[in-house]
């Protein structure tokens, strides 16, 4: 399954604003936020700010980079149709 990323800025009431919307087959499935320096050990990691559909919206894992995040998102989506 191919994923498509679209950079956006997001208002989080914090220093975290760099973000990527993640689309699968045209559907928005997740929003990843690049963690700023305020997160110390986690700074630079990508945080699952929100997930839709099959992406758990209650869990908020962080990922080393966008590749790792996309691998995880693909696993969650499996082969199922996104909607």
């Amino acid at each position: 399954m191919s994923l498509h990323l679209q950079p956006v800025r997001v208002a989080t009431s914090s220093d975290d604003s760099e973000s990527q919307l993640v689309f699968a087959e045209g559907f928005l499935v997740a929003m990843l936020v690049h963690l700023s320096e305020q997160h110390e050990d986690d700074a630079g990691r990508w945080f699952l700010e929100a997930g839709f559909g099959r992406i758990p919206s209650r869990d908020h894992p962080t990922f080393l980079d966008l590749d790792e995040a996309q691998t995880w998102i693909r696993q969650q989506l499996g082969n199922a149709y996104v909607s």
């Binding site: 989080t12 009431s13 975290d16 305020q38 986690d42 945080f47 962080t62």
Partner: peptide, 12 residues
């Protein structure tokens, strides 16, 4: 909450 959200709120 996630650690990230706690961190943001504490900073705020």
């Amino acid at each position: 909450l996630s650690n990230v959200h706690v961190n943001r709120v504490l900073k705020e």
